[in-house]
Design a protein around this nucleic acid. Structure first.
Lengths: 229, 229
DNA sequence: TAGATTGTTAATCGATTAACAATC
DNA sequence: TAGATTGTTAATCGATTAACAATC
């Protein structure tokens, strides 16, 4: 099995292309140019062509891309029509929101097939149609249900605990929704989405617009004479 | 007011530094080296020094950074101790989860001061201690409460509607949690977090590990003779 | 054919990392 | 002083964009 190389930045854009193509297909549009996709997605036309070219050559010069044809062509690389069983770790409000609200958002090919929580009080209850199981069962259930992807939505203070459960489970792809780094071995992919951090980034930007004195710059000054205070 | 320039990639890492420093401060740690922060955050030591240098020079060569001193030094640039009133648009399960669950996660300096929804059925009810208001009131409330940041957690089909409300409201910083691009004018900052897309990215990666034939590569072959069927 | 649009190469840009002189 | 660690410069790396020959 040879090593394929789609640059991470390109990979991260593929869902938009898929979504855009599906919308076009639903509308009955048959042909689309990279330029038209650019207006729809806000991504540069040449970047779209570049990104798609990592998977192969699917368009026709002078014509464009066949919408449904392109979807079919890239589907096997992206596992678009495969079913992905997903484990949800942590069923606080965020975890529950994902289980219910995203049941339809994730639409086609994802399915939360197991829910876990550390809290004995919620173990046994039902979230998103699934019984909540104790964390210890994770490795067994992962094997039994051939789970490849886990969503971690536990609170900050049990990220460590969950990390070791995950390690022993053999899961190789994790969506980390906690505000803490999830330490994993190098063969495990983690995407870290920290909503609190996202809001902070926005506020930092706003703050700097009206920042006191001068931030940044090639900065001489501002050096404290010793560890301040 | 001069234009400050902290590169976006650096800005996006600042919340981790702040979080890490706060944890150290809570533990009573007084001095920290970039190397120690590197182990705590998983970010390279030289990158941490580099990132901090965009704000100024706060450390002491041979010694390191004074934990609380560093926090104090960067606070004014980042508005760390300022209060940020936030508007929440859309109070489905995800929006509600944010309003409740993240009330403590956002901890210190963010506060959801207004909640909006399009659905007349939920307008008037209470979410996260706030009455749900109709979308039309957004511009007025934004002005009245000096709101700078909005979180958009509406469903895909009313993103357009919300976009125009936002435009007329004067909001300049938006966290977009919907699965659609939010068209805004260039002076508005949007951070787009699409949880469904995140899971897809993971699945795409998994799919490519076991992909049929060969993806990518300098690829001659695989060219379709015409827009495929 | 003339016009259009692809896939790819080359040029640009930004981000990361390594290395080190300055300095505590 | 000797050892340590900063802030910054220079080198590397990856991502984006522009340009265009190939081709429908």
């Amino acid at each position: 099995m040879e090593f394929r190389r789609v640059p991470p930045a390109a990979l991260a854009r593929l869902p938009r292309y898929v979504q855009s193509l599906r919308t076009l297909a639903d509308q009955g549009v048959e042909l689309v140019s990279s330029q038209e996709m650019a207006s729809a997605t806000g991504i540069e036309a040449s970047q779209i062509r570049r990104d798609l070219s990592y998977l192969g050559a699917f368009g026709t010069p002078g014509v464009g891309y066949d919408v449904r044809g392109l979807l079919r062509d890239i589907a096997p690389f992206l596992g678009l029509y495969r079913d992905w069983p997903v484990a949800l770790l942590g069923c606080g409000t965020l975890g529950s929101a994902l289980a219910s609200h995203y049941a339809d958002l994730m639409e086609r090919n994802f399915r939360i097939v197991a829910v876990f929580d550390r809290d004995p009080k919620v173990v046994g209850s039902t979230v998103g149609g699934q019984p909540v199981l104790p964390l210890e069962l994770l490795p067994d259930v992962v094997k039994e249900k051939a789970i490849k992807i886990a969503i971690v939505a536990v609170s900050a203070d049990c990220v460590q605990e969950v990390a070791s459960s995950l390690a022993s489970s053999g899961i190789k792809a994790i969506l980390n929704l906690t505000p803490r780094a999830l330490p994993v071995s190098p063969d495990v992919t983690v995407r870290h989405v920290d909503l609190a951090a996202e809001i902070q980034i926005l506020s930092f930007q706003e703050a700097m617009k009206h920042a006191p004195a001068s931030a940044a710059r090639s900065s001489q000054s501002g050096r404290s004479t010793s560890p301040s205070a």
